[in-house]
Design a binder for these strands. Structure first.
Lengths: 242, 242
DNA sequence: CTTCACACGTCAATGCCGTTGTCATAAGGT
DNA sequence: ACCTTATGACAACGGCATTGACGTGTGAAG
């Protein structure tokens, strides 16, 4: 937990493992992501990862100080994938929406990994790239620096937070997911409309909405509110007329 | 993971443990919360909890099917505390803000527990009470049911998600927290302003804002956006003029 | 007041887990 | 061809959740 820096020895002599694979940070992170995608977050253990790599578990510690360190590398990889191929268009609203949805989607593409990674601050390259890009969008939209920073936080935090929330749902094992919904529905069905009038009135809607992510809607709300705060009306007018 | 229902045997004969304590669901949940608050989320293990209770670890399984089941009980307890003593005032905007801040605060009062609990859906009493109350506020504010449900989700999800995010930060052990900030600051200081102009320009603000929660601000943005969608303009006019 | 069923605390064992120290070996510069 | 040393393998440690068998004291029934 204390070390956040991957050891960087000479990293020269790649001895293949007994079973032939050649290790590297990249191979390990990729395998970890694959493992997590296939068998769930709880399958990401040093021992299982070693087995999946065809290497002794302890070999991993030549590349990462701890499992926490490995986790940060995974988180950074996800952030990197979210940005891959993205370019700001100059329309700040569309750009921010794209960024938010990309972060959300990249994490949800690996729900199991997202749960582990969304809360973390990696301090690594991909994360810095993302910060730079988003701040760039906000500042060139005309937001003063102080506000740009606040909005940056609101946007990124919300995206990551929703990603984690949705991922936690997606990541539940299928039987348990079904059980979850069933528990809710049976609970709702049994409620006395007199003691719980509001739930009773909206029970159908609640059940239907339960499985959907509130994120795109919440993101829209956030962007609406941000637009209302754009300090320089010219920028907004310029955007919509050009 | 599959069982979400606490076993409810006769629960009649309370034999005191060897060290004199008398077990119950409540005692266990309270002790778990205390334990987590004192020594961090990673200290919540069946063995340690047993020790803190002065009982054999396996005794806990008489009250909860699994640690996951215990976790849901903890989550529901937190939701309950968030609501404790709250009454809607009739001003929907103030009410929703209060609910959001209360959820946030209740979870942050036990950051270590919040990390464990925020993602979960308990299906237990306190959670149902909260759903009923929030829907009540929205529906009597005049939102049509479909919209009330969507807004309910956006609000609660955002509150829980931010709570988890902030809790994850708060929950880091103090030395590691300092290291975290330091890594960021040194990283930022070393960045070339030519390759990262936006970060360079806002470095101070970023560093200062880094430790603050974006939640109150994000909540304000959300409420602004919700207000803009109120279908009945009279309700809004009444609120701001009264 | 005695009896007795059984709720529930305890014990012991199983099979995971992360992590570490030591050793063996092959890669690659010389 | 040699040595250095990066790096993989091995073995061991302590901690983890969970389970099944066991016994003990409680509280109700007679």
């Amino acid at each position: 937990m204390a070390d956040r820096v991957t050891p960087e020895p000479q990293r020269r002599r790649r001895r293949p493992t007994k079973q032939g694979t050649v290790l590297s940070e990249k191979v390990i992170v990729d395998t970890a992501l694959r493992l997590v995608g296939l068998h769930g977050a709880q399958a990401l253990t040093v021992r299982r990862l070693g087995a999946a790599l065809g290497a002794d578990p302890s070999a991993i510690y030549r590349y990462f100080h701890s499992t926490d360190d490995l986790l940060l590398a995974i988180a950074d990889e996800l952030i990197g994938r979210a940005q891959h191929g993205w370019q700001p268009t100059g329309d700040w609203r569309a750009d921010l929406r794209a960024v938010g949805l990309r972060i959300h989607a990249a994490y949800l593409a690996h729900p199991q990994a997202a749960i582990l990674a969304a809360h973390r601050t990696t301090g690594r390259d991909n994360e810095i790239l993302a910060v730079e890009a988003i701040l760039g969008v906000l500042r060139s939209a005309g937001f003063p620096d102080a506000q740009a920073v606040r909005i940056y936080h609101a946007l990124v935090d919300q995206s990551l937070a929703f990603a984690a929330l949705d991922a936690a749902e997606l990541a539940l094992p299928a039987p348990s997911q079904a059980a979850d919904l069933e528990v809710w529905q049976s609970r709702y069905a049994l409620l006395d409309p007199r003691s719980h009038p509001n739930i009773a009135a909206t029970a159908d809607l609640l059940a239907a909405d339960m499985r959907l992510s509130g994120y795109p809607f919440a993101l829209t709300l956030l962007l609406d509110a941000i637009a209302a705060r754009l300090p320089d009306p010219d920028a907004e007018r310029r955007r919509s007329s050009a």
